[in-house]
Every structure is written in C-alpha cells, then in structure tokens.
Amino acid sequence: MSEKKTKRRDFLFTATTAVGAVGAAAVVWPMIDQMNPDASVKALASTEVDVSSLTPGNTLTVLWRGKPVFIRRRTQEEIDEARAVKMEELIHPEKDEDRAKNPEWLVMLGVCTHLGCVPLNDKGDYNGWFCPCHGSHYDTSGRIRKGPAPWNMEVPKYEFVNANTIKIG
C-alpha cells in the first residue's frame, strides 16, 4: 500500500460511488417531491366571488386554496386614513394605491404574516385588523404597523370579472 499512484481499482471505486450517489438521489427526489402540493390541490387555483351584497364598511371572508381571503369594501374615511400614511412610518412600505387599485375594494389574504393566524376585523390600534395570536396590528390597508409580523397581508392576484364578481387566483 505504499504506492500512491492512481490505479484502475481507484477509478472503479470512484466511478461506482458517483453512479451510486446519482442513483440514490434519483430515488430520494420522488420521495421528497411527493409531499409537495399534488395535482388536485393545484387544480383549485381560482375562485369567483359575488360581492354585490357587500355594503361599505363591511368585509366578506371567502376560502381560497384553504386560506381565508378578506374582501373589504372600504368607507371613504378608511381610504383617506390609509392613503394619508407616510411611507417612513411603515414596517413594510407599500403604497395603498398599489395594494388597492380600486380604492373602494381591498382584497387580501386574511393570513397574518407572522405565524398564519386569521386576524380579526375592525380591531387593533390602527382601525384595521388585529391578530389575536401574537398581537400584530394592521391598518385599513392591511399593512403591518405594530407587532411581530414582518410583512403586510398579502394581496393575491385577482380581477373584477364584472361589476359584481371578483375572480381570485
């Protein structure tokens, strides 16, 4: 065993290990990927919601992909309050104009960005939402203002199919 020269046996050893590792990885990946969302889960990608009965100052909560979505028809006061906020006061700066294209309608995932609880309507120090789990306060634009949550509540992809119907997803 004194010779250090690469031999035919060393080559075989390395090649076998390499092929074995690739083979093992090829078997492990399906085992891991089977846990990702399956085709039937992905198929439930969009929901249409009739919002004709919603009056200003009220919120409709619908389920989309297993998560609640808040559809808030905001009052003029709420809109003014949300738009008057200066960017430097925000933890996660986002303009209300970007979050609610049609200022009367705020559509967002009703999921606290801290650990996923559903915040409560018309609660908290900023007249918006309050998460009961760990005390995050959101404003009338669903932006995080106080508490442990790192981001504003997420605005999903949505569009008005017609004046009374919102399609989420």
Partner: peptide, 17 residues
C-alpha cells in the same frame, strides 16, 4: 412550509402525513 403542508394551507394532506 408549502412542502410540509402538501398544499397552500394546513389541510387533508397535512393530516395524513
């Protein structure tokens, strides 16, 4: 998190695993 859930929220796939 999506991988752990097997979906976009805690649901049936999460329960079975």
């Amino acid at each position: 998190v999506t991988w752990l859930w097997g979906g976009y929220s805690v649901d049936n796939p999460t329960l079975t695993r």
